[in-house]
């Protein structure tokens, strides 16, 4: 464990807490893409298949359980909760995310560490996570204005993978035989996808104005 990875995990945790805060405090999920939440639930479920077979550390196990439980809780809340689900932007959240699932799965069959059940699903979860934010970014683009908590949620979600890139660079130089090209390349693509969001987020922060995405 190194400081970059710990910072990345904490940033990821903060993004989840901000999302939960937004939904429970405002009793509204306006501006949140249900499709992105479903994709993230799928990412965690397919990545942590080894949750009960490979014990790495208490920290690792607890964080995996937190990520799985929180992503499922958000999806259930956005689908079931009678108050929250009324504020879901159903007609804006129309990204065909099934294509993202299919593309990631096909790519995982072609490019993986080992052609085994667990490795293919691990690669699938890595590719899917890189694309999972797309429905959310499209929804924000369409809705134009971004409320503070939603903006912070997406910002921290993007920042956590940037910390992981620093972690991979650090591990590359400090550990022999460290090679996680799949995660590195995919993590890079994931972070780049946030680039324009980060730009507009920074502009709104600098001008101390409400965040506006160009329509």
């Amino acid at each position: 464990m190194n400081i970059f990875r710990f910072a990345g995990d904490m940033t990821h945790l903060i993004s989840i807490l901000v999302l939960l805060l937004k939904i429970y405090a405002t009793k509204s999920c306006s501006g949140i893409s249900l499709k992105t939440q479903e994709l993230y639930a799928l990412v965690f479920l397919t990545r942590y298949l080894d949750l009960f077979t490979d014990f790495i550390s208490v920290y690792n196990t607890i964080m995996k359980l937190v990520f799985i439980a929180s992503s499922l809780a958000v999806v259930c809340c956005m689908r079931m909760h009678r108050v929250v689900r009324r504020s879901y932007d159903k007609d804006l959240d129309t990204f065909r995310h099934y294509f993202l699932i299919l593309a990631s799965f096909v790519l995982a069959l072609l490019v993986n560490e080992k052609f085994t059940f667990q490795e293919i699903f691990w690669a699938f979860s890595i590719y899917l996570e890189a694309l999972a934010i797309l429905p959310q970014l499209v929804l924000l683009q369409r809705s134009g204005n971004v409320d503070n908590l939603t903006g912070q949620y997406v910002f921290f979600l993007g920042a956590y993978r940037a910390f992981y890139i620093l972690n991979w660079i650090y591990r590359y130089f400090t550990e022999q035989h460290f090679s996680r090209w799949i995660a590195c390349v995919s993590g890079l693509v994931q972070t780049v996808l946030y680039a324009d969001f980060f730009y507009y987020y920074f502009i709104s922060w600098k001008n101390n104005a409400k965040m506006q995405l160009p329509a």
């Binding site: 990875r5 790495i56 690792n60 035989h177 996680r180």
Partner: peptide
């Protein structure tokens, strides 16, 4: 043979 790393990251 290269030591195969484990999925020790989240």
């Amino acid at each position: 043979r290269e030591q195969s790393w484990s999925h020790d990251e989240l």
